Amino acid sequence: ALNRGDKVRIKRTESYWYGDVGTVASVEKSGILYPVIVRFDRVNYNGFSGSASGVNTNNFAENELELVQAAA
């Protein structure tokens, strides 16, 4: 299972961040479909780089994520 702070690569092909590595911000335990919230260094097309207006978190299912580096 994934944990907060883990570095993960995104495998959801239609995602803006496909192939990117993000950090797990939190994992919901309530049984929702996309329980893993991942935070990225770059914002998506809703904002400009360096601006706070873009979105830099997204929810994924565990099977859409590949663990790159476990949290220390």
Rank of each mutant, 00 (worst) to 15 (best):
Y34M: 08
V68T: 04
F40R: 00
A72R: 10
R9W: 04
A1C: 14
A71G: 08
D41V: 11
Y18M: 03
K11W: 14
N44P: 06
N3S: 12
Q69K: 08
E14I: 08
D41N: 08
K11H: 11
A72V: 13
V8F: 03
N44V: 08
L65E: 00
V21H: 02
S26A: 14
E14D: 14
N44F: 15
V24R: 15
S26L: 10
V24W: 02
D6Y: 03
R4C: 12
F40T: 00
D6T: 03
G47R: 03
I32Y: 10
F40N: 00
K29F: 07
E64M: 01
I10E: 01
S53A: 13
G47Q: 08
V27L: 06
F40I: 02
S30Y: 08
A25M: 15
F48V: 14
R9T: 05
A1R: 15
S26R: 13
V24M: 01
V38A: 00
G22V: 02
R9D: 02
I10R: 02
W17R: 03
F48T: 15
V55F: 10
E64N: 02
E64F: 03
Y16M: 04
R4W: 04
T23I: 12
V8L: 03
A72I: 14
Q69W: 13
D41C: 15
S26F: 14
Y45N: 15
T57V: 10
E62L: 12
V27P: 01
F60M: 01
A61F: 06
L33S: 09
V55T: 12
G54T: 04
A71D: 09
V43G: 05
T23F: 06
G47C: 15
N58Q: 15
R42M: 04
R12K: 08
I37D: 02
V24N: 00
G54S: 05
K29Q: 12
K29T: 14
Y45R: 11
G54E: 06
T57H: 09
Y18D: 02
S30W: 10
S30E: 12
G5A: 02
V27Q: 02
I37Y: 06
K7I: 10
T13G: 05
G19I: 04
S51Y: 07
E66S: 04
F48K: 06
P35G: 09
A52D: 13
L2W: 06
G31S: 11
S51M: 10
V38D: 00
D6C: 10
S53K: 07
E14N: 13
F40A: 00
I32D: 12
N56K: 05
S26I: 07
G47A: 09
Y16L: 05
R39G: 04
D20V: 09
E64K: 00
N46F: 09
F40P: 00
G50C: 15
E28K: 11
T23G: 00
A72S: 12
A70P: 11
N44A: 08
R9Y: 06
V27T: 04
A25G: 02
A71E: 10
W17G: 00
Y18P: 00
F60A: 00
A70C: 12
A71V: 10
F40Y: 01
L65K: 00
S49G: 12
L33H: 08
V8Y: 00
R4H: 07
A1N: 10
N63R: 08
V21M: 04
N58T: 10
N46P: 14
R39M: 12
G54Y: 06
L33F: 08
V38S: 00
P35M: 15
A71R: 06
G5N: 04
E64H: 02
R42F: 04
R39A: 08
A70G: 08
V24H: 01
E66R: 02
V21Q: 03
N58S: 15
D41R: 10
V24G: 01
A1H: 13
A72Y: 12
I32H: 10
I32P: 06
A52F: 06
E64Y: 02
R9S: 04
S15E: 01
N58M: 14
F40E: 00
G47Y: 05
Y34D: 04
T13I: 15
A25I: 15
A70F: 10
Y16R: 03
S26D: 11
L65R: 03
I32L: 08
N3P: 00
S26V: 08
G31I: 10
Y16K: 04
N3E: 09
Y16P: 06
D41P: 05
G19A: 05
K29D: 10
G31W: 12
K7R: 12
A1W: 13
E66I: 09
Y18K: 02
R9A: 03
R12D: 06
G19V: 04
A52L: 10
A25R: 10
D20T: 07
Y45A: 15
N46Y: 09
G19N: 10
R39N: 05
K29H: 12
A71Q: 07
G19R: 05
V36L: 03
Y45G: 15
V21R: 00
P35A: 11
A25W: 14
Y18L: 02
R9L: 12
E28L: 15
G47W: 06
R4Q: 12
D20G: 04
S15T: 02
N63M: 07
N63E: 11
V21A: 01
V55M: 08
S15H: 02
Q69A: 11
A71M: 11
W17D: 15
T57Q: 11
I37H: 07
Y18S: 04
S51G: 10
S49Y: 09
N44K: 13
Y18G: 01
Y45I: 15
G50Q: 07
N3H: 12
G47K: 05
I10K: 02
I32C: 13
A61L: 05
F48G: 15
F48H: 14
E62D: 07
E64T: 02
L33D: 12
L33G: 11
A72L: 11
S51N: 11
S49A: 09
F60D: 01
L2H: 02
A72D: 11
I10H: 02
L67N: 01
E64S: 00
N59D: 05
R12Y: 03
R42Y: 04
E62I: 13
F40D: 00
A1M: 12
N46M: 08
A61I: 04
D41Y: 09
Y45D: 15
A71S: 08
K11D: 03
Y34W: 08
V36Q: 00
